[in-house]
Simulated scan of single mutants.
Amino acid sequence: MDALQFYAIAFIIIWVSALLFKDKLKIEVSGPILMRKTTRLRDFIDSIAQKSPRFWKWSMNIGVPICVFFMILNLPLLLYSLGTVIQNMFAVHGSSTVSTVGIAIPGVSIPGSAFNVPLVYGLIGLVTVIVFHEFAHGILARTEGIKIKSIGLLMLAIIPGAFVEPDEEGVKKASRFAKLRIYAAGSMSNIAIAFIAFLLMTALSSFFIAPSFHPQGVEVQNTMPDTPAYGILQNGMIITHINGYEVTNLTTFTDILNTKIKPGEEVNITTNQGTFKIKTTTNSNNTNHAYLGVIVQNHLTVNQDVASKYGDIIPWFLYSLYWLFYWIFFLNIGIGTFNLLPAKPLDGGLMLEEILGYKMSSDLANRITNSVSIFGWLIVVVLIGATIVPVIS
């Protein structure tokens, strides 16, 4: 069963159950959105907040400038990405246009995306993003003395979400810096989780993965649209030779394309699923290098001495754990920092409006924030469209 079938079955089960037991489960249905509010976890959030309110406030005193840094950084990064996309549109045919902004749906290959999020790792990673983000908002709201009206789960079609609903009047009456702490809390929790996951995956890589495995060829992770390999090489294929040259790891793969193969040359790609003829094109980053249009990673095999001592299960379990931490890191840092884009209704937009309100009227701060928000969202739409439209057109 592929990811789309999984989502289709899950959609049917969730929506049929929600509609049948709507009153019993206290589920609200609003168009494509299912929502269930509860007050059960309010005491839990309150207890965490009250155990060390000074810690939470001071941690967010540090977190606010960190979030402001990412908020300011986001727009130049988007503009740089937009410039790269526009430049690639006029580059040599066959180069791929890949945006730094993409849609992450676990298990589903998004056209034009430079990455594919695995189904299981992605779902677990998204749960950590949502839960820690929303609970952090709730903890800081309670630390600031603001009541929480409800906590809940929601479903937009098949996309899960969660929310913590603070008392609106309480938020309005809070000081500007208190609001900034509350708004920053969600993304800072994601950044903190990403940092912890990064440390754990680095430790696993250094102390367990590196001594336990050796590369044996490279595995295709994705093929870029409108490139030589697109439609020929498939995800999961293991490339072992290019024109007879042995591919042992990612380094030799790159070296062969850069030094042994000329742009425009037809090559034989030997994989574990057969040999394929592909005519290379020019790499847009270096016109002297051949380009296939594939994203690959090392294909690993357990070292013989490790296998004889520990078997295959433990090394592969640790390897799986490494990738779990990788995707927790990737999704938390990616979604957490994107949420700081100065565009409402994202937290970055709310923070921008509060910061502007220090030196100008609320009306002017609101108008500037709305203008920046429209500008930011337009760039995001263009970046996503620039990668998807060429594929589906």
Score class of each variant (00 low, 15 high):
Met201Gln: 14
Ala194Met: 09
Gly186Ile: 09
Phe135Thr: 11
Glu134Arg: 10
Glu169Pro: 01
Leu156Gly: 09
Ser187Ile: 03
Val164Cys: 06
Pro160Trp: 04
Ala203Pro: 01
Ile196Lys: 11
Leu153Pro: 01
Asn116Cys: 01
His93Arg: 14
Ala184Met: 09
Ala184Leu: 08
Phe132His: 03
Ala203Asn: 07
Ser175Ile: 04
Ser212Pro: 10
Ala194Gln: 08
Lys149Arg: 13
Ile191Gln: 06
Ile193His: 03
Gly125Ala: 15
Ile105Gln: 09
Val129Tyr: 07
Ile110Gln: 12
Ile191Phe: 08
Ser189Met: 15
Arg142Leu: 12
Phe115Asp: 14
Val127Ile: 15
His93Tyr: 09
Gly161Val: 04
Ala178Met: 07
Ile148Asn: 06
Ile130Tyr: 00
Ala184Thr: 08
Met155Gln: 09
Ala194Tyr: 05
Pro106Trp: 04
Lys147Pro: 04
Tyr121Asn: 13
Gly125Cys: 11
Leu156Thr: 07
Ser95Gly: 15
Val120Asn: 04
Ser212Asp: 03
Phe132Val: 14
Thr97Arg: 11
Leu200Met: 14
Phe163Cys: 11
Gly170Thr: 11
Ser109Tyr: 06
Glu168Ile: 12
Ile148Cys: 05
Pro118Met: 09
Ile191Trp: 02
Thr100Gln: 11
Ala210Leu: 13
Ala203Val: 12
Val129Thr: 03
Ala141Lys: 00
Tyr183Pro: 06
Asp167Trp: 00
Val120Trp: 09
Gly145Pro: 04
Glu144Lys: 12
Gly94Gln: 07
Ile146Tyr: 05
Ile182Pro: 09
Ala178Leu: 05
Phe115Glu: 14
Ile139Gln: 01
Ala157Pro: 01
Gly125Leu: 11
Leu156His: 05
His133Gln: 10
